[in-house]
Design a protein around this nucleic acid. Structure first.
Lengths: 260, 260
DNA sequence: CCATAAATTTCCATATAATGGAATTAATAT
DNA sequence: ATATTAATTCCATTATATGGAAATTTATGG
């Protein structure tokens, strides 16, 4: 009875997907789904049936447990193209990973989050915040995420900071201040020591539209030993050169920039 | 007015996702979506709004056109794990790609389709039916797809053949006969010359449960020159060894087998 | 730059489709 | 076997999605 958008059933269905997504890989039983989504059993059953018919949910093995279906994987690999960004950026990521010997990430904005769209490992494999491709972190937490946030237009930046304050607090971090964000814009990159995983540092540079709206960020993850202050400028420069190259290609192609 | 499952709104919403998925990367406008899905404009608008709020749809650039959102990419990369199958199989695919120098695919069943869950290229890059990770082909068309179909229980096999007959016809191919499928089961592998792309051959072996239900297939794609009849047995044997290895690992792990 | 057309968005009375309580059936646990 | 819990079906009720109409915004072209 909270709000009536005229799409309760759809939103409930999507809510079920979200619940199943967060669940462990053994999957969820119908009862659990109903409980988590605050639905009555028959309601949950109907929606689950529809999602299963469509391939958005699938049974685990031959049990009755439910996990995400492969149709989502298919749609995801279409949606993940994000207007060709991943394809355009991949060679750059590979070059950077090879040149630095470290771990490179392509982060793009999706609503209030930054999503890891691609990742290229070289010699050293790093545990980042987002970790894997498809992982997400609230805008403002993590280097790539921070860099994207810093380049959002002021009004939007404020909205996002407010919206993510509690989420980031819950992760025992803080929303970056406007001063910090301004610094990121001025410097053209952001570096931080990972507060979650000791000994890990990250840095990121933005990929911008001609009007300097952020599309994405290239981030590096490495151990402190491998990315000392002396080495940073050279690495950042390489990353910036590749970012410019990607920007140029995106502008050249009649294609399409990601947003929202 | 066809059937009333009690989830019209949800199914319509998912239908919109399917429509957008098939659309070119420039995205669809609301009018087009409404037309394709046979919805009234306001209805389409409401559903689209809900999908956009949830990140399942996103605007293209700053236009009003819609494409799939990154939330689908995130969910997809969770759903794509398919109970750990991709992770378990990846080393095997890499080994095979390296050993053969050709292109290896991991295909899994999803409803009436076989979906390409992973792909490892070696020296030679091949244009397969499914092409890319996330691509799908109707069960019965393509080597991996064919192999999975061949190992389905009889009743299910029939259902799928009937269900896919028209789809496969539309692609100017034929549903395999029961005799062909029996042959695949007996031989333990399937080889064919690609009828769509000249000079390309494929072959596939199944990954089965202990009860011999098909989970997935490993497929190879190569040029005729690179995969002549003399070489085939050796390659098939390698693939079968890796398939056995994957089966063993899947049984060992308390984990989870894909299905649906 | 303004006029016109087209697409998008909002509004709301109506009817239909989703809802959830109760009962049934199936699957586990004891 | 029996008890317990979960999954599914049924159906009367009403909350919810629906779509016609209108307002608004955006695109088009004169």
């Amino acid at each position: 009875m909270k709000k009536q958008n005229g799409s309760q059933a759809l939103e409930r269905g999507l809510g079920i997907l979200e619940a199943v997504a967060e669940a462990p890989p053994e999957g969820l039983r119908l009862t659990e789904i109903a409980a988590m989504c605050e639905l009555e059993q028959p309601t949950a059953h109907r929606l689950v049936a529809a999602l299963e018919r469509a391939g958005y949910l699938a049974r685990v093995g031959d049990s009755r447990r439910l996990r995400l279906g492969l149709r989502l994987f298919q749609l995801g690999s279409i949606g993940g193209e994000a207007g060709g960004l991943a394809d355009v950026a991949r060679p750059a990521l590979i070059r950077l990973a090879a040149a630095t010997g470290d771990c490179m990430f392509l982060m793009v904005r999706s609503g209030l989050d930054a999503v890891c769209l691609d990742r290229q490992d070289a010699t050293y494999t790093i545990h980042s915040l987002t970790g894997h491709v498809g992982g997400a972190t609230p805008l403002g937490l993590g280097t790539g995420s921070m860099t994207i946030l810093a380049h959002l237009p002021e009004a939007e930046r404020h909205e996002v900071r407010e919206a993510n304050r509690e989420r980031i607090r819950a992760l025992r971090h803080d929303v970056p201040s406007e001063a910090e964000l301004a610094l990121v814009r001025d410097r053209g990159f952001y570096r931080e020591v990972n507060r979650s995983v000791a000994g890990i540092v990250g840095a990121a540079v933005p990929i911008l539209t001609p009007r300097r709206r952020p599309i994405a960020a290239i981030a590096i993850g490495a151990t402190e030993a491998r990315l000392p202050d002396e080495r940073l400028p050279a690495v950042i420069e390489m990353m910036q050169i590749e970012a410019r190259r990607i920007e140029a290609e995106l502008n050249a192609s009649p294609s399409v920039l990601a947003s929202s």
